[in-house]
């Protein structure tokens, strides 16, 4: 047996032992729900469950004063363990590519694609496309609220046949032959995006940006001299920074002589910009990692309790 395999076996056994011990001691990883009974006007009843804090469940905390019925939820408890396992599976990539990571990655790809599809189906294809083309079917099965007080249905809107036809043409891309038909809806997409962006980028990212840079280089207001000097330095920095950076991006002139010197200042400004971006990016990534570790320590292992959900810290 290889030494690394032996090490891994020891790690897995120790971790498993720790988890089993901790689960027996604390009941870690359990999720609780508050059950609420809904009574319809027709007399039918059913129960809905909402996430609840463990401290409100009598089985967890006999001293609780909560009157709500809070109980252990097995589906959600399994969910917490599943989420923890998937989190660790992704983290395992840090050691090196391995089957656990690949499995988690494969699940991620499948779930993401289907998730977007389901959301798009219910929000746009049913609520918009089908509703306007087959109003009676949609209202009678999915959107009963849209039935008029007199029992009428929304009108059929035949213009919605256009996106339906374009949509079918788009899906032809999946067919072995006749994929060229999808060029029509693709052209529609490209044309619409170009039309949307042409004017708005001109207004917001070109004209408005230039407008915001036309500012006084010497600020003379009723503020103190120091404040005026400070505002003037700020404005000069901004204007010089924008101008020099733009010169750097201007490639129609050869960057020699004065142009070279100005563009060099522009590079420095851009380097400061990128340095700031790097600092902010680090900040962002660390926050994401902290959140995942909080999940493991809080929801799963019950080592910390920052939101005071179990009365063991906070």
């Amino acid at each position: 047996m290889k030494q690394s395999t032996l090490i891994w076996i020891v790690i897995v056994v120790l971790s498993g032992g720790f988890l089993a011990w901790r689960t027996a001691q604390t009941g870690m990883g359990r999720a609780y729900v508050e059950a609420e009974t809904v009574i319809a006007e027709s007399g039918e009843t059913w129960t809905i469950e909402k996430t609840a804090d463990a401290k409100n469940a009598r089985s967890f905390n006999p001293t609780t004063e909560s009157e709500a019925i809070v109980k252990l939820s097995w589906p959600r408890t399994i969910g917490v363990w599943c989420a923890a396992a998937l989190t660790i599976a992704i983290f395992s990539f840090l050691w090196g590519d391995n089957p656990f990571y690949k499995l988690a990655e494969a699940i991620f790809v499948g779930v993401s694609a289907a998730y977007a599809m389901v959301v798009g189906f219910w929000t746009m294809i049913v609520n918009k496309l089908f509703l306007h083309l087959f109003p009676q079917f949609v209202v009678d099965n999915i959107l009963p609220n849209l039935k008029g007080a007199d029992g009428s249905y929304p009108d059929v809107k035949y213009l919605y046949l256009v996106p339906l036809v374009l949509g079918v043409m788009l899906l032809m891309r999946l067919a072995p032959q006749g994929g060229w038909i999808s060029r029509w809806p693709l052209a529609f997409f490209i044309g619409a995006t170009a039309g949307l962006r042409l004017v708005h980028y001109f207004q917001a990212d070109f004209v408005s940006q230039i407008q915001a840079t036309i500012i006084p280089l010497v600020v003379l207001t009723e503020q103190t001299t120091m404040e005026n000097v400070s505002a003037s330095i700020r404005n000069i920095t901004l204007v010089v920074g924008v101008m020099t950076s733009l010169v750097y991006f201007f490639f129609s002139w050869e960057h020699v002589g004065v142009v070279h010197r100005i563009s060099r200042v522009g590079i420095w400004v851009l380097m400061i910009t990128f340095g700031a971006s790097f600092g902010y990016t680090v900040m962002g990534r660390v926050a994401l990692l902290a959140q995942r570790l909080e999940f493991l320590f809080d929801d799963w292992l019950w080592i910390i309790d920052p939101a005071s959900r179990r009365l063991i810290g906070g």
Partner: peptide, 8 residues
């Protein structure tokens, strides 16, 4: 609507 069909 076409954007939703693009998800499909």
């Amino acid at each position: 609507i076409l954007a939703a069909i693009a998800f499909i």
